[in-house]
Simulated scan of single mutants.
Amino acid sequence: MKMNFLKSAYGAMVIAGLLAVSCNRDEDARTGTDAEEEQAVESVSVGEDASDDALEIAYQGENQLTSTGGRVNTMCATVTDDKVNKIITIDFGDGCTGPYGRVRKGKIFIAYSSEVGDSIANRIITFGNYFVNNKGVTGTIELRDISVNAENHVQSTKRLKDLTVTFPSGQNIVFNGDRTREWISGYGDDDMSNNIYRITGSVSGVATNGRSFTQEIVEPIIADWSCAAQGNFARVSGVVEMTKLNGYSVRKRTVDYGDGTCDNIITITTFRRTFKITVEN
Rank of each mutant, 00 (worst) to 15 (best):
L6K: 13
K7Q: 08
K7F: 09
K7L: 15
K7E: 04
V14D: 07
V21A: 15
N24G: 12
N24H: 11
R25H: 10
D26P: 00
R30N: 11
T31D: 13
V41T: 06
V41Q: 04
V41S: 05
E42F: 06
S43T: 05
V44C: 07
A50K: 14
D53L: 13
D53Q: 12
D53K: 10
E56Y: 05
E62T: 06
E62W: 00
E62A: 11
Q64F: 07
T66Q: 12
T66E: 11
T68Y: 09
G70L: 07
G70S: 14
G70F: 04
N73L: 02
N73Y: 09
M75K: 07
T78E: 08
T78F: 01
D81C: 06
K83T: 15
K86A: 01
I90Y: 01
D94V: 12
P99C: 01
Y100C: 04
G101Y: 02
K107D: 10
K107W: 02
F109R: 07
Y112N: 06
Y112G: 03
Y112S: 04
S113W: 00
G117N: 08
D118C: 06
N122H: 06
N122K: 09
V132I: 15
K135F: 12
G136K: 14
T138W: 03
E142W: 02
L143A: 09
H153R: 11
H153T: 05
Q155R: 14
T157L: 08
V165F: 07
S169I: 10
F175W: 11
I184H: 00
S185P: 00
S185M: 05
Y187H: 10
G188T: 10
D189W: 04
N194Q: 13
N195C: 03
R198C: 03
T200L: 05
S204M: 09
R211C: 11
S212W: 08
F213W: 05
E219D: 13
I221V: 12
I221T: 03
A223S: 15
W225H: 13
A229I: 01
S237I: 05
G238R: 00
V240L: 11
E241D: 12
M242K: 09
K244G: 00
N246T: 15
Y248E: 08
Y248M: 09
R251E: 15
K252I: 11
D256V: 07
Y257M: 06
Y257H: 13
C262Q: 04
I266D: 01
T269Q: 08
R272L: 12
I277S: 03
T278C: 01
T278Y: 01
